[in-house]
Design a protein around this nucleic acid. Structure first.
Lengths: 189, 189
DNA sequence: AGATCTGATGACACGTCGTGTCGTCACTAT
DNA sequence: ATAGTGACGACACGACGTGTCATCAGATCT
């Protein structure tokens, strides 16, 4: 038998989520989190560089998702087609069925300035990875940057509205609605 | 004569900029900054909520700039026209002549993770203010959000490229070039 | 002119964050 | 068996950020 219970990072993540939901992220301390997880403060900072980081563990799948988006996009697709099909076929399915969990997490993130900022960095990471993918498809630096920013804007906006709605409308529908609204803003094609 | 030298916030800003340029933002401490400015640590946190905030004092003009953009936009303009004319006539002129200062500041910001994150929040504030302006012009919530995100993307991208270039090309030119590239990504109008 | 108010600053204490360093001990490989 | 390896505990410590009270120049009031 092992000296310690396994899954230390997971336990810290769960403990932090529960405590933050109850008391607010700013009000809880790292020692509180580690106490609930049965660990010490020092161990927390071995798993996470930062108090906030414990709520952003899901980011590890980001590169894989991004790779899947570009792997599934035939070379003849336009950038906007890559975005729309990628969000519909690869990204949106990963959100389905997790609405309540995501809502809880969003509530915590939105209630804390530091966490909101960290969430913006996540958006930035997505855009950076997307820009790299578009450059690999032959787009210029400028176009790749803009395409990736568009994609980040669409998915962010769509997910936000999806979580706001009371209906069970699929995220893919809202993504489509968002791209339509975007076209009406940029001008008729 | 007064008990203290005036312009405490300005002195702190200057001191922080100089020290950060020389040693890196992470390596300097608040006591170091306040010592150079002839103040105490406690006073620093009376002027700035956060160590990083001392490098973001220029944000106070943001609401005024945003108001000017929308005040100068006739109601018949499309959202994209509001963005292009606003950036060209109101925003870009505010950057001209400050290239070297902005480059220095950008070097500091880009070299520190915390400052990069704070810079993302600035972008978010711009987008939020822009969305409010577009809503006031009668756009739907969704369209207003997307239009503002577009504007933030364009100005961010354009300024970044403007600072990268060796030529003295005016920012307004690069803004135009960016909007053209954006159209080539979204599809022909 | 003298008393009073105001507001920026100094001085001090303190809790939390995040890191450096070293020791401990189950597990693994040779 | 013996020697790693790697995750965790224990401890110290510097830096960040806040609460609280005292101080004192300048403005306001009487």
């Amino acid at each position: 038998m092992s000296r310690w219970e396994p899954g230390a990072a997971d336990r810290l993540h769960t403990a932090a989520l529960e405590l933050a939901a109850e008391h607010g992220f700013a009000a809880i301390t790292v020692p509180q989190i580690t106490a609930r997880a049965g660990l010490t403060t020092r161990t927390f900072f071995r798993h996470f560089t930062d108090k906030r980081e414990v709520l952003f563990t899901g980011e590890t799948v980001l590169p894989a998702v991004m790779a899947e988006v570009f792997a599934g996009a035939p070379p003849e697709l336009t950038p906007m087609e890559v975005i729309t099909t990628g969000l519909r076929d690869v990204v949106a399915p990963r959100f389905e069925g997790r609405r309540e969990n995501l809502r809880l997490r969003r509530g915590i993130v939105q209630s804390d300035e530091g966490l909101r900022e960290r969430e913006l960095r996540k958006r930035s990471l997505i855009a950076e990875a997307g820009a790299a993918g578009f450059r690999d498809r032959g787009l210029s630096d400028l176009e790749a940057t803009l395409a990736a920013q568009l994609a980040a804007t669409i998915i962010d906006t769509a997910v936000s509205r999806w979580l706001d709605e009371d209906t069970e409308r699929p995220l893919a529908d809202i993504v489509l609605e968002t791209t339509v609204a975007l076209r009406s803003v940029t001008g008729r094609p």
